[in-house]
């Protein structure tokens, strides 16, 4: 599957979270969930300059991404993307910020309003680190089935309470 396949573009339009997998300077794997927006053929992720992902990409500039194919149905599988990654130190561009704000702050307005009193705490949190932007340009794509989508009732060794089906 090509990254410009209409199915890939449709998933990227709707997905909210990407899991970014990178390789450390010592060669170990790392994965973390992160926000993203799409800009042309790139995925743009805003993060901190001191994060593990940024450090890893400085040594090994390649990333693998996993996204829910349907954010409401885990049995729809996951979109897998691989491509070269670049890191830009500094904040996202104005256009990227607008896209991020529209998707995550306006899109989550109810959550934002509910936490209005804690905005100053969040500002202090952000001020503790320098911003950075990760750009990934996918070169290959695949749709993977999700082994975790098997019905819970198949896991017969676990107590029913842990399945969360009963109050």
């Amino acid at each position: 599957m090509r990254p410009d396949d209409p199915r890939v573009r449709a998933i990227l339009r709707r997905a909210m979270i990407v899991r970014l997998a990178t390789r450390s300077p010592a060669g170990g794997p790392f994965v973390t969930p992160i926000w993203f927006v799409v800009a042309g053929d790139r995925l743009i992720m805003a993060t901190g300059a001191q994060t593990v992902s940024v450090r890893n990409l400085g040594a090994h500039p390649e990333a693998v991404l996993l996204l829910d194919a349907d954010r409401h149905r885990r049995d729809a599988g996951m979109l897998w993307l691989r491509g070269p990654a670049t890191v830009r130190l500094g904040p996202p561009s104005f256009g990227e910020l607008v896209r991020l704000a529209r998707k995550y702050y306006l899109g989550g307005l109810r959550v934002e309003l509910a936490n209005l009193a804690r905005q100053r705490l969040r500002q202090r949190y952000y001020a503790q680190s320098e911003p950075a932007v990760i750009e990934v340009r996918p070169q290959s794509a695949a749709l993977l089935s999700n082994p975790g989508a098997a019905p819970d009732y198949a896991d017969t060794t676990e107590p029913l309470m842990s399945l969360g089906r009963f109050p």
Binding site: R23, V31, V64
Partner: peptide, 15 residues
């Protein structure tokens, strides 16, 4: 989401 490094040394990930 599971990440690992494959036999070629490339990072890989899968659900």
């Amino acid at each position: 989401a599971l990440a690992y490094v494959d036999e070629t040394g490339a990072v890989q990930a899968l659900p």
